[in-house]
């Protein structure tokens, strides 16, 4: 056991001419819930496949639980659990049979297997379903079973690739509660996701965009990044009586960099020259009242949107 659960140095993977993962450096401490974010096709799954030994590295190095992934991918496999993007269960096997199968694959002896299955079943509250075929479970239960199967051999490090894609909000909440529960017991989670609320819960997040890591830190650190909060600007939450028409006007107003809708209010990034009175007057003419204006700190979503715009502008600049 080393201090660092997952470490990469210039991790790179190419498919022909295409670079899917480019010089990624990550450090994940033991017991962290590491949220790995990025739009579709940015390279999240590929990073997981590199770290779990499913794909060979094209460049750089990686260590999982101190084991060199290049040198001993088989040893890595004994230490990790992996839940792939599609929950990979055998639909025609029952819950119990799926667990038994994976337990035997990991070579657990019969007594150990029985006690581990009991643990997993109670941990994931699978009790009522043990004799049901996996294919007949709903999304949330399938995913619990998949998680259970991936944890039978008591791995210290878990890789979950979009575990909450396509399941309902209640199941999503329950899964995250379970993850934090387990992380409290010292298990490290490497989780990819699209959901910002999930990212906000993580103790450590990183953002990958077009194969490159462009942000890495705690949610608070990222929200305080200078790139996201340029000098001389501030963020405001503007509550109005008509939010969509209001948004259009706010966007055109002088001193507003960027505005978007959140529920019943407009979130805007404005600079020093922004004239709040002037905006109120303009909206009044259109029959819209501003009910409240509050200062706002950047959310993770703001962070990722801002970084994505910057990165896009950079890439277009290079092409031009």
């Amino acid at each position: 056991m080393t201090d660092i659960a997952i470490r990469t140095e210039n991790l790179t993977r190419r498919f022909g001419d295409f670079t899917a993962v480019s010089d990624v450096n990550i450090q994940v401490q033991h017991g962290e819930v590491f949220g790995f974010l990025g739009p579709n096709g940015s390279g999240k799954t590929t990073v997981i496949k590199l770290l779990t030994g499913l794909l060979p590295l094209s460049g750089g190095d990686a260590w999982v639980d101190g084991i060199d992934v290049r040198k001993d991918p088989e040893e890595v496999r004994e230490h990790i659990g992996y839940m792939s993007q599609k929950f990979s269960l055998y639909d025609d096997l029952t819950v119990l049979e799926n667990l038994t199968f994976y337990g035997r694959i990991y070579g657990l002896c019969p007594e150990k297997l029985r006690s581990r299955i009991d643990d997993i079943v109670s941990q994931n509250v699978l009790g009522p379903y043990v004799n049901r075929q996996a294919g007949k479970l709903s999304g949330g239960w399938k995913q619990r079973l998949a998680l259970g199967c991936a944890m039978l051999h008591e791995p210290k490090i878990m890789f979950l690739d979009e575990p909450t894609a396509g399941i309902d909000p209640v199941a999503r909440r329950q899964l995250w509660d379970l993850l934090f529960d387990l992380s409290g017991k010292g298990i490290t989670f490497f989780v990819t996701t699209h959901y910002m609320d999930e990212a906000e819960r993580c103790s450590h997040v990183a953002y990958i965009y077009f194969s490159k890591l462009i942000a890495d830190g705690t949610p608070a650190q990222l929200e305080a990044m200078p790139d996201v909060n340029p000098v001389g600007t501030r963020r405001l939450e503007i509550r109005t009586t008509q939010v969509t028409r209001g948004l259009r006007l706010v966007r055109k107003f002088q001193g507003v960099h960027y505005a978007t809708v959140f529920g019943q209010s407009v979130h805007a990034l404005v600079d020093g020259s922004f004239d709040q009175e002037g905006l109120a007057k303009l909206l009044k003419q259109e029959g819209i009242d501003i009910t409240e204006v509050r200062p706002l700190t950047a959310s993770l979503e703001d962070v990722f949107v801002e970084l994505t715009y910057r990165r896009q502008a950079e890439m277009e600049g290079k092409h031009a």
Binding site: L54, Y82, S84, K86, S88, Y102, I105, Y106
Partner: peptide, 13 residues
């Protein structure tokens, strides 16, 4: 097709 083979490859099988 189901993706279970990939799952098997991360086990010590």
């Amino acid at each position: 097709e189901k993706g279970t083979l990939e799952q098997l490859f991360v086990t010590p099988v």
